[in-house]
C-alpha cells in the first residue's frame, strides 16, 4: 500500500470536493491548488523505491553501483515542471477572479451565469 499515493489521492478528492461545492471563487482556486499538490505527491510517490537515496552521484553514491542505490529520477524531473505550471495556472485564475470581481462585485460563482442555453 503506497502511503504517499493514498495521501495524494485523498488530497485530490478533497480538492475536487472543494471545487465542486464551494460557491466562493477563491475557495474554488484553493481547491484547485490542493488537487495540484495532491497530484504532485502521487507523481513523486510513483518514483520512490524503498530504502534508496536521492539521485545525486556524489561521495556516498558512486557512479558504478548507482543503478541499485538511487530513486527513479524521472518523476522528480516531471514534477519540477508540473509545480511551476501549477503556479502559472493558479496565478492566471486569480487574475481572472480579480477582473471578474472588478466587473460585477461578487465572488460567488452563481452570479456569472448570463451566458447559458
Amino acid at each position: 500500500m503506497n502511503l504517499v499515493m493514498t495521501l495524494g489521492f485523498l488530497l485530490v478528492i478533497i480538492g475536487l470536493w472543494a471545487m465542486l461545492t464551494q460557491k466562493n471563487l477563491i475557495k474554488i482556486i484553493i481547491g484547485f491548488s490542493i488537487i495540484d499538490t495532491g497530484v504532485h505527491l502521487i507523481i513523486v510517490s510513483i518514483g520512490y523505491i524503498k530504502g534508496r537515496t536521492a539521485p545525486i552521484l556524489d561521495a556516498s553514491v558512486s557512479v558504478a553501483d548507482a543503478a541499485n542505490k538511487i530513486v527513479d529520477p524521472i518523476p522528480s524531473a516531471l514534477v519540477l515542471t508540473a509545480i511551476v505550471i501549477g503556479l502559472a495556472v493558479t496565478a492566471l485564475m486569480l487574475t481572472f477572479v480579480i477582473k471578474l470581481y472588478q466587473k460585477n462585485k461578487s465572488l460567488s460563482i452563481d452570479d456569472y451565469q448570463e451566458l447559458k442555453w
Binding site: 500500500m1 503506497n2 499515493m5 493514498t6 489521492f9 510513483i46 518514483g47 520512490y48 523505491i49 524503498k50 539521485p55 552521484l57 557512479v63 548507482a66 543503478a67 541499485n68 538511487i70 527513479d72 529520477p73 524521472i74
Partner: peptide
C-alpha cells in the same frame, strides 16, 4: 483500483536504469 494496483517499484525502470548508468558519463 489505481491505488491498489500500483505497489512501489522494487527496481528502476529500464529508462531510469539507463539514466542511472550512462547519465553521468
Amino acid at each position: 483500483p489505481m491505488l491498489i494496483n500500483t505497489p512501489l517499484h522494487t527496481s528502476l525502470t529500464p529508462l531510469a536504469n539507463y539514466y542511472a548508468t550512462q547519465g553521468a558519463d
